[in-house]
Amino acid sequence: MRPLPVEPAFHRRLAFPARSAPDVSAGIDFTRGTLRAWHPGADPAAIADIVLVAAELLANAAEHAGGPLALELCRTPVNRIRIEVTDATPARPRVQSLSPDTPHGHGLRIIDRLAHAWGCHPGDGGKTVWAECDLPPPATHAP
C-alpha cells in the first residue's frame, strides 16, 4: 500500500546521521512537534497514541535494524497521518508470539492495536515500515 499524495506543507522528514547511535528521542520530539503544528488543540491522549506508534517504529529500527535512517510524516487527504521509518536492513518485521508478561517484543502488537493500518515495503537495500493513524478531531471549546 503506497501513501496517498500529500501537499508539501503536510510532509516532513527527519534524517538520522549515518553510523551514529540511534536517537529515538529525537524522532519522538520531531513527531510531537509536527503534530502540534499540524493539529493544534487536538486531544492529547490521541496525540500520545500517534507518538507511541512512531516511538515503536523507531525503537524497532534501533533494536533490530541498526537504527533508523529517516522518519517521514505525511498528513493524508483523509485526515490520517502516515508515519514511515526507513532502515538499512531488508528483513521484514514480524509479530512475535509472546506471553503478556514478557517485558519486550510487543512493539508491533502495539502498532497493530493503535494504527488504522501498517506494513512494510522494500527499499534500496533496506526497507520502510509504515503505519497510518487517524488524526483526532480538533478540540472544541464550549462557549
Rank of each mutant, 00 (worst) to 15 (best):
V53Q: 01
G126I: 06
P103N: 08
T31R: 00
F16V: 10
A46M: 07
L52D: 06
K127Q: 14
I111L: 03
V95T: 13
T86M: 10
G125N: 04
A142K: 12
R36M: 11
H64T: 06
W130R: 02
G126H: 06
A15S: 11
D29T: 12
P122M: 06
G105V: 01
C74K: 13
W130Y: 14
G67V: 03
P17S: 09
R2P: 11
V95Q: 12
V95G: 01
T102R: 12
R80C: 09
A37T: 11
T102L: 07
V129Q: 08
G123N: 10
C120G: 04
T34N: 05
R19A: 13
G66F: 02
P44L: 09
Q96D: 11
R13D: 07
L57G: 03
P137Y: 04
P100V: 09
A54V: 04
R94H: 15
P17M: 05
P68H: 07
R82Q: 05
L52V: 12
T86L: 06
C74N: 14
H104G: 05
P77M: 00
G66C: 02
I28F: 05
V95A: 10
L114H: 02
H104R: 13
P90D: 01
G107M: 03
N79D: 12
D134W: 07
G105H: 02
G67W: 00
V51Q: 08
A48K: 11
N79Q: 12
P103C: 08
L35M: 08
T31H: 03
I110L: 15
A139C: 10
R13F: 06
R80E: 13
L58G: 03
I110T: 15
E7K: 13
A70Y: 03
L71N: 02
A48Y: 08
R82Y: 00
V6M: 01
C120N: 14
G27N: 02
A55G: 14
L4M: 11
D101I: 06
P44A: 10
E63R: 15
I47N: 06
R32N: 13
A42H: 11
P143Y: 09
R92C: 12
N60C: 09
E132K: 02
A9Y: 05
A9R: 13
H39D: 06
A88D: 15
L98W: 06
F10W: 11
L98G: 06
L98V: 07
N60Y: 09
G125P: 02
L14S: 07
L98E: 07
V51R: 05
A37F: 08
T31V: 02
P100E: 09
E72G: 03
A21I: 10
P122W: 03
L98C: 08
A59H: 12
E7Q: 15
L35H: 01
I81C: 04
G123F: 01
N60L: 07
T128K: 05
G27R: 00
W38I: 05
E63K: 15
T102G: 00
V85G: 07
G107D: 03
R80I: 00
V6A: 14
P77R: 01
